[in-house]
Design a protein around this nucleic acid. Sequence first.
DNA 1: AACCGTGACAACCGCCGAAGC
DNA 2: AGCTTCGGCGGTTGTCACGGT
Length: 338
Amino acid sequence: MGHRCCTKQKIKRGLWSPEEDEKLLRYITTHGHKSWSSVPKFAGLQRCGKSCRLRWINYLRPDLKRGSFTLEEEQIIIDIHRILGNRWAQIAKHLPGRTDNEVKNFWNSCIKKKLISQGLDPQTHTLLSSHRRITTSSSSNFSNNNNDSFLIITSNMPNSANNNAPIIETSQGLSSSSSLPTNNQAQPSVVQAPSSIVTSSDFCYEPSRIIENNNSNNSNVSNIICSHNYSRMNNSIPSKNSLLWNSRTDHDAEDFRVQTLEEGQGMQHSLHAADDDDDDEIREANNIIEMNTNASLEGSNNDNNNNNNFDFGLLESVLNSEFMSHDINYMDELAWNF
DNA sequence: AACCGTGACAACCGCCGAAGC
DNA sequence: AGCTTCGGCGGTTGTCACGGT
């Protein structure tokens, strides 16, 4: 049973012969591909347009990088997969010369097994239950020992096509009553960020500290969760009043800074998004955006944003992953207060 | 030499959303 | 507004090479 476009004509299937490749290559390089459905006809191929497209994209395209994945590429895939999941096309965009099919195959044949052998769930990047040393409560609950244990920034990402400034929500601390906030509880403070701060729902990430994830209910909404995991980087507990860390925003990027100023008086965020030249979505590289907010750290109502886009399931998994997969002792020494 | 398991890669399938009519 | 076509995507299957038994 072929694809609909294949049913009308006699269609060859299976592996492509060198002659077919030659025909397709010659046609595309001279005529381009305005309409894939008409390519086989004009190129003299007994294939469906879809098959031609796939062959071109995955094999014949001149800008493809062949050969094994490098360790760096592997790490990029893992990092982005942690954030985006099985969005192979999005992941591949961060790997010049690689196709989604390649990335997917590499993941399924290599990375997946490697993660499993390390005791990690390849889908969630958290420890497999058999490897857990700390047990947690049910997935709907999260508990910690301090109200001000972490900072959450939730950004309401715009489409890359529009220039609306994203909404950045900040919230500090979760209830220590062991359950996550619900929609009826105090809402995070909301500030309007400059439009240059974020242009993509998937470019800004820091594997161990910041998680950004599309909300399943709204593809334009992403969450960035920053946990207070500073001491691992700085080998010290961060000061209460000034907090700064770096993180990666892309494979060649390094800056994403959040600076927290006087507790209770406000917060200052300094975001530095690095660029990926090949990605239209990542336009605002190297802009240092500072925004001062008067957001109360206690959380406040806001007049222009009522959505509750926190992905608490994600949050929990992130935190579980964070604390269990990296450094158990870290939990003991972590000072939660700023 | 034959068989089998595995890994890597290629290709197909079915679904979905956008665009055009 | 509803239908069709098309391109894009992720999941799955097929194919081939290779090494071990």
